[in-house]
Design a protein around this nucleic acid. Structure first.
Lengths: 389, 389
DNA sequence: AACGTATCCGCAAACGTTACCGATACTTTT
DNA sequence: AAAAGTATCGGTAACGTTTGCGGATACGTT
């Protein structure tokens, strides 16, 4: 006979429908609804994943409490050498691996720095990663890398994922097409340190690590001028990126300083891509009055130009001087050797990482210079050393 | 006067030592020990980190329970459209970001794949990473990358960190110096899918993704022979790596097939490094009876040889044929262009990632072929196209 | 009236750790 | 010997989620 779990009444129990395929009853006395639990139900299917030994397992096997185990494992005080040893032994025996997830949850920090780069097809960003990676691992931090693939939506979703994973700090280099920065302001609001590098923007009040694009660009163009080139073209990048604007500015400044006329039809701004480089390069080389030198915004564009020029039989550097930017590995090996501006990629990564760690470890909001500008270096190779005539 | 918090007695309170620098009392009546909490103590320093809005916040603000919020956020059933919308609205308003850590803890999976590479200074491993990254992000997984820096101890500590972070699967390429594999066997024991790629070993029963080094090597040497080279040297890698052994084997097989004599003083094995390459290269080029072709174990060695030969005035390819392995980006641009064997780096990454996901998603232990061999490709450039005389 | 069905929501137990606050048992001091 | 101090250990509440299951209401159906 069924009795009410509440008033123990037996007589006034009635069926009252089904809930999840189980008979439901109601006690008319106390108006209490209930269903009967089936004790002989099949035990829930054991999770096929093997059980990972936890602190609790160690505690049980050693006969101490969880907290003691935790203290022993972390070399805390308040524990006798004997129990510590016993615990450590048992931990080794049970092949214990701490669960960082639980640790992170309770400490609400992950010891992980996130990094978002637009791409890593050429060696530029990988080298930055190496620099950051080195410093971070040494400091006991992990690094998770994501790639926005030069796409703004992916960048946004990447930042969301980083946020969800509760990284302790973020290093980010923006996309070509990013011009809304709300996804970065979230980090400010949350108090999560953020450092922009290389592809930065002015609309976020976060530290920025950049190279001296202006100066590098200036040096490159000055070098061309000093080598006797007169009519220098500039194949630039997209103007929403600061680097493109700075390199353009350096170009203009150098031209102006030496009193060279800038022919505006020889100043082109476009997206970074090999295809675009070929199109713009062809345009410049096919100009009725061809420039005698081209300063390109990056090495891959410069190399395209060199190759096209050689195909056309234009002699480099005599008939055409070419200078690139970044010093890609292949630039040293191409035909005459590409003159270029070397960026301290390693240092960019290292500096950014260092900065984000400083921000994390500084309790009070430190007042820091909000921009660090690293030096560039002119690498002179064959593509610009004209035989003075 | 101090009164017992339990029996409110005042007379029989006595000091009873210190606990963490705080006076401790005991009530002789009820034998109750206690310390006085200091209400005017400075409030515990507020964690400077701002409060992150949680599911509970949303629940409170919306007037529903946590479970309802959770269900609403995940589009579960058993929830009315109105409450769902209310919850979602409130979530947006409070700028809720889910805490992946808590999620991972309760689900005991992280949706993250770990990857350990020996280095990423040249483009080889970055390209593999790109391939894996692409596939994994598409499948909704994250990728955390670690670098062992060609050091066995670092590799071990990396695997430990991966384990602690409860990655769902691991992709690993071994160090030059790794010859103990216990740290990998832990993954087997734990049931965590593991895939080896490129630098693999035979002593772990895990899937392996490699390229056909033997065949590639054979093709390279055969190509040299078919171009009329006779006395072909081999500059090889360290023999504890399978790749080195396979490439050596391919070299020997091709030489044998075409009845060429192998002069053992022209077969050298050494570590991967630019310096070593220069030393061995100098040795080969300075030999009293110089080889007429060199097959190098990788492109960077081959390039060193090409550069040294050009310095010495040795004409390439007429006096010396050179073939490398890997198709580094700079190989296309160097002097005459370096003939080389292209490895499908992208595919290596993609295949490995695909495989690890298969292992994760297959409930029962699937029987899979435990090795996948990807094809290599001969890229013919100027350094080996001899003008037949 | 009695029973059945559907829909929606809340409770509370996990997940594995850490750390605060006590609580013992012992040693030392007065 | 009582009182005070010391050295270790345990209990337990967090951390933020998910989820199984029970409970409640509102109808619809015999």
């Amino acid at each position: 006979m069924i009795s009410c779990p509440k008033c123990s009444e037996v007589g006034s129990i009635m069926k009252a429908g089904y809930v999840r395929n189980k008979q439901r009853y109601v006690c008319k006395d106390c108006n209490y609804f209930f269903t009967l639990s089936n004790p002989d139900q099949i035990a829930p299917i054991k999770n096929s994943r093997r059980h990972q030994t936890t602190i609790i397992d160690i505690a049980r096997s050693t006969g101490v409490s969880n907290s003691t185990v935790s203290r022993a494992l972390h070399g805390h005080a308040d524990i006798s050498p004997e129990t510590r040893n016993a615990v450590l032994e048992m931990a080794a025996q049970l092949d214990y691996q701490p669960n960082q997830l639980a640790y992170n949850l309770v400490k609400s920090r992950t010891n992980t720095i996130g990094m978002i780069v637009p791409e890593f097809t050429n060696s530029f960003f990988p080298n930055i990663i190496i620099g950051a990676h080195e410093l971070l691992t040494e400091a006991g931090y992990n690094l998770t890398i994501m790639q926005s693939n030069e796409s703004y939506p992916i960048e946004v979703s990447n930042t969301k994922a980083m946020l969800a994973n509760r990284i302790d700090g973020l290093l980010i280099s923006l996309t070509q097409e990013t011009n809304n920065y709300d996804h970065l302001k979230v980090f400010e609001k949350r108090g999560i340190p953020l450092v922009l590098f290389n592809r930065v923007c002015d609309y976020v009040s976060a530290p920025k690590v950049v190279v001296n694009d202006f100066e590098g660009s200036f040096l490159a163009v000055e070098h061309l001028i000093l080598n006797g080139y007169e009519r220098i073209a500039h194949l630039g990048g997209p103007l929403n990126l600061l680097v493109s604007r700075e390199r353009l500015r350096g170009y203009r400044a150098a031209m102006e300083k030496y009193g060279k006329n800038i022919e505006e039809n020889m100043v082109i701004q476009g997206m970074f891509s090999q295809q675009k480089a070929r199109i713009y390069g062809k345009y410049l080389l096919d100009l009725e009055s061809r420039p005698d030198a081209i300063f390109a915004v990056n090495d891959s564009s410069a190399i395209e130009i060199v190759l096209m020029a050689l195909e056309k039989g234009i002699r480099i550097p005599d008939e055409l001087g070419v200078v690139g930017f970044s010093d890609n590995p292949e630039s040293a090996y191409i035909g005459p050797g590409l003159t270029t501006i070397r960026q301290p990629t390693h240092a960019i990564g290292k500096t950014s990482a260092q900065w984000v760690l400083q921000l994390i470890e500084s309790e009070e909001e430190m007042i820091l210079p909000n921009e660090k500008v690293l030096k560039t270096e002119l690498i002179v190779r064959g593509s610009s050393k004209r035989n003075r005539s």
